[in-house]
Amino acid sequence: MTREPQPIRVLIAKPGLDGHDRGAKVLVRALRDAGMEVIYTGLFQTPEMVARAAMQEDVQVVGLSILSGAHMSLFPRILTALTDEGHDDVLVVAGGTIPAADVSRVKAMGVAEVFTPGTPLDAIVTYIRKNAPVRLAETL
């Protein structure tokens, strides 16, 4: 019996003090409809909660939705926390109101791509499908 390829597992997180989750919910729905398994953690997540959830759920992708303007302080803490959890072989992407001037700085931190308002959902799905790390069979 041939095995179906495993669905891509994605964590969508709302870090920090940011109560606006409509964008995150739209994206969660779009990724679900694209056949992915999407873990949504809800609002007000600390960097450590995001990283721990990503590790326990063994996701290939972490999507950070942020509209509070705190991305420059929260994103480095999340990336560090992911390394602390040993879960650094993960594609980290971000979306929300991230000013154009900050995009290159966010990418320099290690966020692979930034999807600002107006990005077509298809573009996000396609990007994730293309770039989600493939989990190679490890030595057991």
Partner: peptide, 20 residues
Amino acid sequence: SSPFTGGAVLGDRIRMDEWA
């Protein structure tokens, strides 16, 4: 899981506090 796409929304962690 969706019977149409195989995708799923796994949303139970929303109810979880921070258990560090």
